[in-house]
């Protein structure tokens, strides 16, 4: 259960939003909407514990977020966190091992397949297109079914129709399995789920 109480954030001395109260229960999807610069990314980074709120707090299972929270949360930001010098496979291996995910060769392979980049596995990431790079970053989701809370910043950006369909499938499976998902998105991509909320940020 993810909750925020009276959350407020500032950027460069400017108040972006205040008094944001959210509750997200297992199986729930939360969309963060708002114009450019309304603080969608800041809200997501605050939920991830990267940005310190100006007021209010984020709570996970009733406690202020801390070390335990990071074990149960996955955050994917704008930047793909994919290293040019490493192959797609090496990148995925490192990021999943680093987040303490259980991995095996077959799991990694099927994760790459689920995003349609299995044939790129041994290619250094510098040769990837923008969309392929995004897929390489998102492949970690296919290994993270056991991580209850996903925070995704613009996950559909740079993806083609096929990629969007694949990601929708992964997200829907996560929610159906009792996971929670928070995402910011410009596009209104339909995701099958039991309960969906949305929060609109206004400047």
């Amino acid at each position: 259960m993810l909750e925020t109480s009276a959350l407020a954030c500032e950027r460069g001395g400017l108040r972006l939003f205040s008094d944001v109260n959210l509750t997200l229960a297992p199986g729930g999807l939360l969309r963060v909407r708002g114009a450019n610069g309304s603080g969608k990314t800041t809200l997501l980074r605050t939920l991830a514990g990267l940005t310190r709120p100006a007021a209010g707090e984020v709570r996970w299972r009733g406690n202020p977020i801390g070390d335990d929270y990071r074990r149960e949360m996955l955050f994917l930001g704008h930047a793909a966190a994919v290293k040019d010098e490493l192959t797609v496979l090496e990148n995925l291996e490192f990021s999943s091992r680093f987040s303490c995910l259980e991995i095996s060769e077959s799991k990694i392979k099927s994760a790459l397949e689920s995003l349609g980049i299995a044939r790129l596995a041994d290619l250094p990431a510098r040769y990837l297109s923008q969309g392929q790079r995004k897929r390489a970053a998102l492949a970690r989701l296919a290994l993270s079914a056991g991580v209850p809370l996903w925070l995704l910043d613009e996950p559909f950006a740079a993806l083609d129709d096929e990629g969007i369909a694949q990601l929708r499938k992964i997200c829907a499976a996560h929610l159906a399995g009792g996971g929670m998902l928070v995402l910011t998105s410009h596009q209104d991509v339909e995701i099958a789920c039991a309960a969906a909320w949305s929060v609109e940020l206004r400047g």
């Binding site: 990071r70 955050f75 966190a81």
Partner: peptide
């Protein structure tokens, strides 16, 4: 920092 790895290092359970 530029490619987002640092962000992942801060939110990782390490």
């Amino acid at each position: 920092h530029a490619d987002g790895t640092l962000e992942q290092m801060l939110v990782a359970p390490q």
